[in-house]
């Protein structure tokens, strides 16, 4: 085992928070396997930036909502080939809309990727990490999974579901020295939030005690902490990184 390279898998690692997590874990010394869906150039650019910073990284196309594809990915690239030190379930999509007009497929698509996708990856990682008797899993949930958000019934359902998944997996895997935690970002400065109308931004800011949006790096630092040797006694927790909102 000791000859295998300690590796962190980051799903949805090509953009936004996932990109920052991938780069931060790369700097922390892990080989980073980041997954993407649609934009290989972006994912390859992240991998290249990690390599340029002296780390190791590879990008893989993976639909996390596809159970068979997830199994194949872990079988082909992870099992017996690397030491699976960290899994970060970050991949996610939104399909916002008021629930009275929300289509079945828009509800299902968000659950399939954000919640079932995390489950599929976690299940595969759990098999490997249990055998290793070490590993940490971090699920990226959201402040809206804790407090709800108008127009995001599907997304909030999935993010709240991730918290239950985190706590159950933590209890199941504790005897194998595998920790499972969640990080719940608040409003983070990303393409999504910068595109919001000024009035909406002001409304969000009025609820944040620190009076500013978070940065992707704030989330990445929290993930890196939970994935590190400094956090081995922390499991089943939801670490809110949200500027002081209490949920």
């Amino acid at each position: 085992m000791s000859t295998l390279v300690p590796t962190a898998v980051v799903t949805g690692g090509s953009r936004g928070i996932g990109r920052s997590i991938a780069e931060t874990l790369g700097k922390a010394g892990f080989q980073v396997f980041l997954t993407y869906v649609s934009k290989p150039q972006e994912a390859e650019a992240v991998a290249a930036s990690i390599v340029a910073a002296g780390g190791k990284a590879k990008a893989f196309a993976l639909q996390v909502g596809d159970s068979a594809a997830v199994s194949a990915f872990f079988q082909d690239h992870i099992k017996d080939q690397v030491q699976l030190s960290v899994l970060v379930n970050n991949a996610g999509i939104t399909k916002d809309g008021f629930l009275i007009r929300m289509k079945d497929e828009d509800y299902a698509a968000v659950i399939d990727i954000n919640l079932k996708g995390a489950f599929y990856c976690l299940r595969e990682a759990a098999k490997i990490m249990s055998k290793q008797r070490t590993g940490s899993i971090v699920n990226i949930t959201s402040v809206v999974g804790q407090m709800g958000n108008a127009g995001q019934a599907n997304y909030c359902s999935a993010k709240a579901g991730l918290i239950g998944l985190t706590k159950s997996a933590a209890k199941e895997l504790a005897s194998r020295n595998v920790t499972v935690n969640a990080v719940a970002p608040g409003f983070i400065e990303t393409d999504m939030t910068t595109a919001l109308p000024e009035a909406v931004r002001e409304e969000y800011l009025s609820h944040i005690p620190l009076k500013r949006f978070g940065a992707c790096k704030d989330i990445a630092n929290a993930v890196a902490f939970l994935a590190s040797e400094n956090a081995t006694y922390i499991t089943g927790q939801v670490l809110a990184v949200n500027g002081g909102m209490y949920c």
Binding site: K127, S130, K131, E172, S175, R176
Partner: peptide, 11 residues
């Protein structure tokens, strides 16, 4: 064996 071991064994 604990219950998780049994499950792993079956798998």
């Amino acid at each position: 064996a604990d219950s998780l071991d049994l499950t792993e064994l079956i798998m």
